[in-house]
Write a protein that binds this DNA or RNA. Structure first.
Length: 924
DNA sequence: GAGCACTGC
């Protein structure tokens, strides 16, 4: 048995994969091939340089970044330490015991677990009490009035048909537009039917919702309709908040993620009789995942009923996916909304675009695109000309390529026009793409002088603006005052404003995508889908007939996609892959191929490779002990690793603050026009510590240490959202629960001193952040920081202006780690922490060294980061690094609270590492 | 010099 768990040469960071290039021949050529002409030559060099950068051949990363120096005194200390700890780190027996336990946890598959599924059990006593309760309620006056209202909903007329279909089939698709009442009624139909037939104890319904707010509000609504408080027959369960109803004879509204997490423990969904998946047409990852997973579950649980609910458009797709299961459509009810398009708006306002020939960026490219547009629009304009429904001017404007760009002046003209001509005093809701457009329009409206406060209430609405939580969005304004809301697509689903009568839809939406080739996320405006356009339109008809203006032509409307791309095709897949693994769904590719829409194999490969590099998956794509823990934590793998190391290094509180802020969202708000002030306050709070991540810690830490009034004041002073900070605080507590269940901590208070021995040691906290975020490393390019950095993948990137580092001018290290790189208007790194070389040398993967005439060169991460040092320094660092990584791997495989006051030799290494080393290493 | 929107026992 000895040697089975021998100290391995592997890094804690895991093995890496060699970078590959399909263009090696190009990279190696010095000059372009002679047959190329003109622009082709330029493209050749651009492409070559990009490839070279990716291979690390063409930037300063290829050279050593400096020399690592250790003082003689320090060397002496390390030698002592190595001597004193050399014999004690092999603990084969305990490690092996854990391995066996772990092996049992990760092998096996979901089929086995499903085999043990049992049907929901019946209790006649409960059946009777539920029946009596229901019978009593029928004479309750409030219930009766609510019932009258419910009976007016279109879904009520289909009640018997829906029940019959569900009774006769295991899977049913119910489709219907907003207003048909399917979300609130279908679950009640089922429950009431069971109760009335004296089998209420057999009924426990889960209904999933894609958003937290809808889960709560639907639950409250349904409980109200049943004239009972929450937690009797109706409840909800979302992350961090739950009001659960009784076990039997009840309905729970959950977010999809909650159900998926529950299925990690109980894939059979024991005790559940019906699962309703609502809003599945939105195609978010979690419901796509659940739809596929349920396909396996229902094979073994024949008594479990699945009801898929979607919008009407495309609902056949879901039915087809479930072997053409029966499908019922409920007609919707909303007030009629008249739709107008760009040509109508131009006619109405007489608006004229700028001359399109004015230079806009890359001229030749633009000229080509302009031509494409003119060819596209010409047939449509010809038709309009023939019909003579629109003026000559309108046709001229439609031919202008600028007609396809988002034009704030046009929107302003339209708003003014509505305000002048439309007698109805209803609110106007404008859909824009983002912060800058909202800000611009707001300014233009102010400057125009046509919107005095006495007659208009203008409300910008964006997730980063404090207005989101304010009442004024929903309040009906006084008589004679018109409300104008300028919003992002937050007003499409998340925020519902009832008194809207006019909608202006700019036709664009910002979408994230995952660019596999460049291994980065993108955020770019795109045309809306028909589903978006119709959702936006629907916002005008909630209380009375309305009008919707789409700012694109009818010709463009014909080309729009029906739906947005499913989320699973637009995002990184690390979390999805970990979920597949923890649910024991077998081979990653096989499961992903069985989804309704499968991600590209390359996208899967990129994510699998990162997970291997993080040492979460081994070469056979099996979870490692680290991977097992990461899959249990509801965060991305890098943030999860950071949390685990925060526990081991006893700096848990600050690391948790950073982790939850990165994974959820930071708490900073951005009132319109206060951008500079916010930046200033952020820098003040960050105290020049060279880290956006520590800033997140500072914000939460200061908040937690204040009393109620102090918190309010603090949030006000530093542009922070009290609500978000409280949520973050709750999330920290939730992670303590997880860590407690995993045995990494033995109490649930994140501030407990036992887990925060080193929390004031910010160098150590930074090192833990670095260990988590690796391999997201970048090198600052010049001596003077001009915001330009190179990632170690060889991508050129720019520091995002919101980062505190974007204003910093001098640096004591050329290295930084980051969480998010997002390509929007530029390739931006959104957040960063400056790090010294040593944490990278210790936590990076693929440590190698090379000795030649010029001395010793250490390199990290497949030769992407190089440092010079003396021979003896290299040997010491290497040995210390091996010990540390071995110990960390041991700790992860054998979770337990690290006793920092203990005298064990392993503690000696951790203590040495955290107290004596991190900032004392100089780089020349 | 810039920030679509969601979500996790």
């Amino acid at each position: 048995m000895s040697g089975r768990f021998k100290r391995r040469k592997r890094d804690f960071g895991g093995r890496g994969t060699k970078s590959e290039s399909s263009n090696e021949d190009i990279v190696n050529l010095d000059r372009h091939p002679p047959h190329l002409r003109g622009r082709e030559i330029g493209w050749f060099y651009a492409r070559r340089n990009k490839e070279r950068r990716k291979l690390g051949l063409y930037n300063k990363i290829s050279k050593p970044l400096g020399t690592v120096l250790l003082s003689e005194n320090k060397k002496e200390q390390i030698q002592q330490l190595l001597k004193s700890t050399s014999t004690t780190l092999e603990r084969d027996d305990t490690a092996f015991a854990f391995q066996m336990k772990f092996f049992q946890m990760i092998t096996g598959d979901i089929e086995q677990k499903l085999d043990s599924a049992v049907a929901v059990t019946r209790s006649e006593k409960i059946d009777k009490s539920l029946f009596d309760e229901f019978d009593n309620r029928k004479s309750n006056n409030y219930y009766k009035t609510m019932l009258l209202k419910r009976q007016k909903l279109p879904s009520f007329s289909k009640k018997e048909e829906i029940l019959k279909l569900i009774d006769e089939n295991q899977v049913v698709v119910v489709s219907g537009e907003t207003g048909c009442g399917k979300t609130t009624q279908v679950a009640q139909f089922i429950l009431d039917d069971f109760v009335e037939n004296r089998k209420g104890s057999l009924c426990h319904i889960i209904c999933t919702q894609p958003r937290r707010i809808s889960a709560i509000s639907v639950a409250e609504r349904v409980a109200d309709e049943r004239a009972e408080p929450l937690r009797m027959g109706v409840g909800y369960h979302i992350r961090l908040e739950k009001e659960l109803p009784r076990d039997k004879g009840s309905i729970v509204f959950c977010t999809t993620g909650v159900v998926l997490k529950q299925m990690e423990k109980d894939p059979c969904l024991s005790n559940v009789s019906h699962i309703i998946l609502d809003e599945i047409h939105e195609r978010d990852i979690m419901s796509d995942f659940l739809i596929t997973l349920l396909k396996q579950v229902i094979k073994k649980r024949k008594d479990l009923k699945v009801i898929l609910m979607s919008a009407t458009l495309n609902s056949e797709k879901f039915s087809a996916y479930y072997d053409n299961c029966p499908h019922i459509n409920i007609p919707g009810f909303t007030y009629p909304v008249q739709e107008f398009y760009l040509e109508d708006v131009l006619q109405r306002t007489g608006f004229k675009f700028d001359d399109f020939s004015k230079a806009r960026g890359n001229r030749s490219f633009q000229a080509r695109m302009d031509n494409v547009y003119r060819n596209f629009i010409e047939p449509h304009v010809r038709k309009l000309e023939a019909n003579r429904t629109y003026s000559r001017d309108v046709c001229i404007q439609l031919r202008n390529p600028k007609a396809e760009e988002l034009n704030i002046d046009l929107i302003l003209a339209l708003i003014i026009d509505i305000c002048e001509k439309e007698k109805d005093p209803g609110a106007i809701l404008v859909f824009l793409t983002g912060f800058s457009h909202i800000s611009n329009l707001n300014q233009l409206m102010e400057k125009s002088g046509k919107f005095p406060a006495s007659k208009y209430r203008i409300i910008p609405l964006h997730s980063l603006m404090p207005t989101v939580n304010q009442r004024q969005v929903f309040d009906k304004p006084p008589k004679g005052v018109r409300k104008i809301i300028i919003a992002t697509n937050i007003a499409e689903t998340s925020i519902t404003i009832d008194d809207v009568v006019f909608v202006i839809d700019c036709g664009k939406i910002k979408m994230t995508n995952f660019d596999v080739e460049n291994n980065c996320q993108t955020l770019k405006p795109e045309w809306v889908s028909l589903a978006n356009a119709s959702q936006r339109k629907g916002r005008a008809g909630r209380v009375q007939p309305g009008i919707c203006f789409h700012l694109f032509s009818r010709a463009r409307n014909m080309t729009l996609e029906q739906y947005q791309k499913p989320e699973i095709l637009r995002t990184r897949l690390e979390n999805t892959i970990l979920t597949i693994k923890i649910l024991q769904l077998g081979k990653i590719e096989t499961f992903l191929e069985s989804l309704m829409d499968s991600p590209e194999p390359d996208a899967v490969k990129v994510s699998v490779n990162l997970l291997k590099r993080l040492n979460a998956l081994d070469d056979t794509e099996t979870l490692t002990p680290l991977g097992y823990h990461l899959a249990k934590l509801p965060v991305g793998p890098q943030v999860g690793k950071m949390i685990l190391l925060g526990a081991v290094f006893s700096c848990l509180d600050p690391v948790l603050s950073v982790a939850v802020s990165l994974d959820f969202k930071d708490a900073f708000v951005m009132p319109l026009g206060k951008e500079r002030e916010v930046d200033f306050k952020k820098r003040e709070l960050s105290d020049d510590n060279g880290s956006d991540h520590l800033l997140l810690h500072m914000a939460l830490n200061r908040f937690e240490n204040e009393d109620y009034n102090g918190r309010k004041q603090f949030c006000w002073n530093y542009f922070l959202s009290c609500h978000t900070l409280t949520q973050l605080q709750d999330m920290k507590k939730q992670f303590m629960e997880y860590l407690y269940n995993m045995d990494f901590v033995n109490s649930k208070d994140p501030g407990n001193h036992k887990f925060n021995v080193n929390s004031k040691n910010l160098s150590l906290v930074k090192a833990v952040i670095c260990a988590g975020l690796y391999p997201n490393v970048a090198v600052i390019k010049g001596k003077k920081f001009r915001n330009i950095v190179h990632t170690i993948e060889g991508e050129k990137a720019e520091m995002h202006p919101k980062s505190v580092l974007s204003k910093q001018v001098s640096f004591n290290t050329p290295l930084l780690v980051y969480y998010l790189r997002l390509r929007s208007t530029s390739n931006f790194i959104h957040d960063a922490t400056l790090v010294h070389p040593l944490p990278l040398i210790f936590f990076g993967d693929n440590y190698t060294y090379n000795v030649d005439d010029s001395g010793t060169t250490i390199s990290i991460g497949n030769d992407r980061l190089k440092f010079k040092c003396s021979r003896s320094t290299n040997l010491l660092i290497k040995e210390l690094r091996d010990r540390l990584n071995w110990f960390l791997e041991y700790k992860i495989s054998n979770p337990g609270v690290v006793d920092w006051n203990g005298e064990g030799p392993d503690i000696a290494i951790l203590r040495f590492f955290s107290f004596h080393f991190l900032d004392h290493l100089s780089l020349k």
